[in-house]
Amino acid sequence: MPGRTDWADDDEPDLATSIPPPQVTKNKDGTETVITIFINEDGKRVKRTQRIKRTVIKKKENPRVAERRQWAKIGPEAGKPPGPRPDTTTLGENIIFRPVVGFKSGQQQEKNPEEDKKADALKKMQIKCRICQGDHFTTKCPFKDTMAPEGEAAGPPPDMDERMGGGGAEGGLGGGIGGSYVPPHMRKGAGASSGGERMGGKFERDDLATLRVTNVSEFAEENDLREIFERHGRVTRVFLAKDRDTGRAKGFAFVSYADRSDAARACEKVDGYGFGHLILRVEFAKKST
């Protein structure tokens, strides 16, 4: 600071504007710690500590390619700055491409009509208030406290009931008489194919095609397991239990198949398979309670 002669001149505003140069210290592990003090937009002093690791990435490039990258753009692009332009170049959504043995075109197409059906069902399921016939839930009705639901004694109209069954969660909201709470298993349609039942069914099916793999090497990765099990059919899920602190496998895993017969075959084939330095033990997962 030129012109500063006495420490007493070093008053508050001066302190706020004087910025020491960034301190750079080298750490043992090859990283650098940079401490910078600067003034942010609000006029406050900010101390910033950054740990920087510098790595040199060497990339080989064909000299012709490097030269071509320097070419001046032509035609409609002439004179435009380097870099992709948003009007001609956009990024698409991420696509997962994982080659598998025995890819079946049906896999995707079977799934998709189901999704369609779901979407259709959602579309059909309009929300309709049973008190005022408005397009909101009965519980949200502004006349809830002043008016009784329409046709209360007879229960909700039959078409309504169906919708409720498809709707799952909403099934309970006003399903009972006079809006009193009805436990899920007592609700109408619960016995046949209501939303709640289907949820349970889904878990059950999942369990049926799930294998429990034990005696897994602690250095195993999910991908290794996936590779082993994918040979026997389409694997929908691989879960490898890992220790939270060390990140190593705990020694057991769950593998779910899309198809139970695949799972059964895999169970037979992979049980006793040597992986790492251990022998895998595979059995059907017991239903969780």
Binding site: R69, W71, K73, I74, G75, P76, E77, A78, P82, G83, P84, R85, T88, T89
Partner: peptide, 14 residues
């Protein structure tokens, strides 16, 4: 003509 690495358009031939 495009750069395949980043999708930048190099130009057009009309």
């Amino acid at each position: 003509a495009w750069y395949s690495a980043n999708g930048e358009r190099f130009g057009a031939y009309k």
